[in-house]
C-alpha cells in the first residue's frame, strides 16, 4: 500500500516535469501567443464560468446524440445478428462506414441540415452509431449456441429471444462498443461545433483563436480533458456495477 502510494507520488513528477519544461519553453518565447502553464492557470481561474456553461451545452448535445444512437443502433445490431441474411449482406457496408472518419461527414450533414442543433445531434448520432451497431452485431453472432437452444426449448418467440437472451448475453461487448461510442461522440461534438459554429465549447475555442487568446483556449482544452476523465471514470464504475456477474464469471475459472 505504501509502496503503491510512493509510486503514485513519484509518478506525478513526469507530468510536473513536462509542465516545467513547457514553462521554460514559454519563457524563452517572448510572445503572448505561446503562454506557459502559469498563464493558462490564471486563464482557467478567470474563464471558468464561461467555459463551464459552454461545455455544458456541448455535453448535453453529445449525450443526446449518444442516447439516440443507443436506442436505435443496439436493437438494430442485435436484429442484424439474429436475422443472419440481412446481417451478412450489410456487413460490407458496416466495414466501409467504420473506416470513414466521423468528422468527415460534418460537411455533408451541413449540406442537408444546416448548422443548427439538429445537424450536430445527427452527426454525433452517426459517430456513436458505428461502434455500437458493430459491437452489438458481433456480440449477438458470438452468443453461445446453447443459449439459443435454451430459448427454443422455452418456446420463446423471436422478439422474446432477442430481449431475454441476446440482450443480456451481449451486454459486455455492447458496453465495450458504448465506451468507444462515448469517446467518439465527445470528439465529434467538439469538432462539429468548431466547424458549424453557433455555441458550445468548440465554438469557444474557435473564438479564442479569433481573439488571439491562446491562454483562454488552452484553459478550455483543460476543461474538455477534465470532462473526459470524469465521464470515463463514471463509465468504468457503472460497468463494474452492472456487469459484476460477467467479471465474476471471468475470474471464477
Amino acid at each position: 500500500m505504501t509502496r503503491d502510494r510512493r509510486i503514485a507520488l513519484w509518478g506525478l513528477s513526469v507530468p510536473l516535469g513536462l509542465l516545467v519544461l513547457w514553462q521554460v519553453l514559454a519563457l524563452t518565447q517572448s510572445t503572448p501567443l505561446f503562454p506557459g502553464p502559469v498563464k493558462v492557470g490564471v486563464a482557467i481561474w478567470s474563464n471558468a464560468p464561461v467555459i463551464l456553461s459552454e461545455l455544458g451545452i456541448t455535453l448535453l448535445r453529445a449525450a443526446a446524440g449518444f442516447a439516440l444512437a443507443c436506442v436505435t443502433m443496439i436493437p438494430l445490431g442485435i436484429f442484424l445478428g439474429r436475422v443472419r441474411i440481412l446481417g451478412v449482406i450489410l456487413s460490407p457496408l458496416m466495414d466501409m462506414l467504420a473506416t470513414l472518419p466521423p468528422p468527415a461527414i460534418i460537411p455533408l450533414v451541413m449540406l442537408f441540415a444546416g448548422t443548427g442543433d439538429w445537424a450536430k445531434i445527427v452527426i454525433i448520432t452517426y459517430a456513436a452509431a458505428v461502434p455500437l451497431v458493430m459491437n452489438s452485431y458481433e456480440a449477438s453472432l458470438s452468443i453461445h449456441p446453447m443459449l439459443s437452444r435454451v430459448a427454443r426449448s422455452l418456446n420463446l418467440s423471436r422478439i422474446e429471444t432477442m430481449r431475454l437472451i441476446d440482450w443480456p448475453s451481449s451486454l459486455p461487448m455492447i458496453v465495450t462498443g458504448a465506451r468507444l461510442a462515448i469517446a467518439s461522440s465527445l470528439l465529434v461534438s467538439v469538432t462539429s461545433e468548431m466547424l458549424l459554429s453557433t455555441n458550445g465549447i468548440g465554438t469557444y475555442l474557435q473564438r479564442s483563436q479569433e481573439t488571439f487568446r491562446v491562454d483562454a483556449g488552452l484553459a478550455g482544452i483543460a476543461f474538455i480533458s477534465l470532462a473526459g476523465l470524469i465521464v470515463n471514470a463514471g463509465m468504468a464504475r457503472l460497468e463494474r456495477r452492472w456487469l459484476f456477474w460477467h467479471y465474476r464469471d471471468k475470474t471464477g475459472d
Partner: peptide, 9 residues
C-alpha cells in the same frame, strides 16, 4: 480525452 480538433486553433 481531448479531440484532435481542439488542439488545432
Amino acid at each position: 480525452p481531448i479531440p484532435p480538433a481542439a488542439f488545432v486553433p
